[in-house]
Design a protein around this nucleic acid. Sequence first.
DNA 1: GTGGATGCAAAGAATTTGCAACCAA
DNA 2: TTGGTTGCAAATTCTTTGCATCCAC
Lengths: 148, 148
Amino acid sequence: MKRAKGFLQRIIQAIKRGPLRMTRKRERLLGALLAMDRPVSAAALRDKAGLPESDLVTVYRTLEAFEGVGIIQRIPLEESGCLFELTEPDDHHHHFVCRECHRTERLDLCLAIELEEQARKLGFTQINHLMEVYGLCEDCQPAAASGD
Amino acid sequence: MKRAKGFLQRIIQAIKRGPLRMTRKRERLLGALLAMDRPVSAAALRDKAGLPESDLVTVYRTLEAFEGVGIIQRIPLEESGCLFELTEPDDHHHHFVCRECHRTERLDLCLAIELEEQARKLGFTQINHLMEVYGLCEDCQPAAASGD
DNA sequence: GTGGATGCAAAGAATTTGCAACCAA
DNA sequence: TTGGTTGCAAATTCTTTGCATCCAC
């Protein structure tokens, strides 16, 4: 999943286009997101960015701000919580998520067109959809014991 | 969405088949679920069943038990929380959910086969998937004011 | 009688909010 | 200077847990 060259530039542009400001913390968070290049939880991101525990609030606020300019996508986990992924503004896609280690793989199957059509027929507007696949990845298989 | 005649009987059988017991509270909750015949939150179910506020714990425990025998399906909401729906044991389907009033409509489109195949290819096991469509239903449209 | 069910209180996780101090543009 | 950003503490929401008591089978 190597990023295109101008990715970071486009992201910074997207941020500065709005009323948002680029601060040192945001740079670090952005750097960490780019370095990891995979969806992470808010806490994991904070750690990777080298921010102290108390800064979880800043992480959430930053992610929310970034989500607002379309460069962060939120991936709900099966039970609770979610992961955040740095994406190009119009790159819609879903994921396979390991429910154990949270490793994710990109999923390029989507029913957006059909779902929105059906939803509109039912009278819905401002339609949005969610689709994620959960399972145990190769590294998290239960030790194949007796027969469980 | 009228239920088949023997629905309640099959449900009670499913419950008694396991180590579960039918108690007065469970009967009331089951009755409320049947009466509403649509997905509801734990709190709404408690109210509909006429149980006191303090019984939310019992509602959650009951729903968890029922989920275990396959007669309850959980529908995650867009932001947080979820709805619970009474279903026949093998009736897999998804939903359109109004993010405002939580009204839901059944969605009979599903990519289960494709998703599981792709997931297996990636080395995943114990695969599960989630797909829900959110929007504003007819009754919850924003008053079409100026141009917002 | 026995083991599952319930009541009450309290814990828990993830995320959000309020407000004063701070700093990027 | 100005208004977005951050720090700290605390609140919120939804859900789960512990444990003594209760009741269905």
